[in-house]
Amino acid sequence: MALATDNTQGMSWHRTATSRFLDKGFFWLTAAFGIGVGIILLAIAFQVGRDAIPSIQKFGLGFLTATRWNPVEDIYGAWTQIYGTLVTSFMALLLAVPVGVGVAIVLSEDFLPPRLQKPLVFMVELLAAIPSVVYGLWGIFVLAPLLQGPAMWFYKTFAGVPVLGSLFSTPPTGRGVYIAGIILAIMILPIISAISRDALVAVPLELRQAAYGLGASRWETLFRVIIPAAFSGIVGGVMLALGRAMGETMAVTMLIGNSSNPSPSLFAQGSTISSLLANQFAEADGLQVSSLMYAALVLFGLTLLVNILAELLVSRVKLKM
């Protein structure tokens, strides 16, 4: 904390006590808030963890693998929701990563004139800021009806196929895991393309010139030099998007159907940890609240893990460039 006094030492000989007190006080005030920001994360973990204790004591780690979520009998297990969270998130990544990286490449190279490129970049950033509930609203009234036809075709064509067929084994309805996965893909697309674009643009011009100077074409330069150099940044962006997808609540809650029955089918209705929380918190009490807290703790831990990994990857890129 020696930093704080550096600036004042030279003039302290005719400072009043009040002035010195104010200076010290100001420093400690800002320090308290600064450190406060750092420990909020701990405060959240502590608060949620404490309220989850009764459920942790009752169900233990079995909570993570049990598939029954039954408020009537007061028996809780969150595997269905954990599975739903993972399936929707990975489905979203599967759809959004190739498209998002493609968009990032188009927006980082000079394919488009700057007059067209700049507004597009701005639009991508803006779309990342549209509230989740608006995507949900659009999903209910536009996307879900639109997906009915293709989903039915998929069901009729693939339901009988062994292994793969189990993914499409139930008839699609207006709500379901697949719609949630698709809306999540649309929502995380702007994040992936914005961060991937940043990583691609940050690759030093010299490397690009070196590759061109050796006679590499544009795509050879991209595949052999630029994308490898930006790779950890792109992966960081994908991880951030995964964290967002796992925690995303409103659009998923509005479209997934909120069924606690486990099913491997993408066309079945399902639930995620966050949709469970959104649906049940307002009407819960007793052990159910505690179990919801436990589920929230699981979600918190999952996203924390993903985000810390992403943060380390993205900051490593910043250091290198």
């Binding site: 010139q209 070196a210 061109y212 100077g213 590499a216 050879e220 490898p228 150099a229």
Partner: peptide, 30 residues
């Protein structure tokens, strides 16, 4: 094609963030 026949060395050394071997092999592989 022109750049494959007329090489260039730049003001600031600009090796690729790859191994020494892969830096040299980059052009021949292309």
């Amino acid at each position: 094609e022109v750049r494959r026949q007329i090489g260039m060395v730049f003001q600031k050394p600009n090796p690729f963030p790859k191994s020494i071997y892969d830096n040299i092999a980059f052009g021949p592989r292309l």
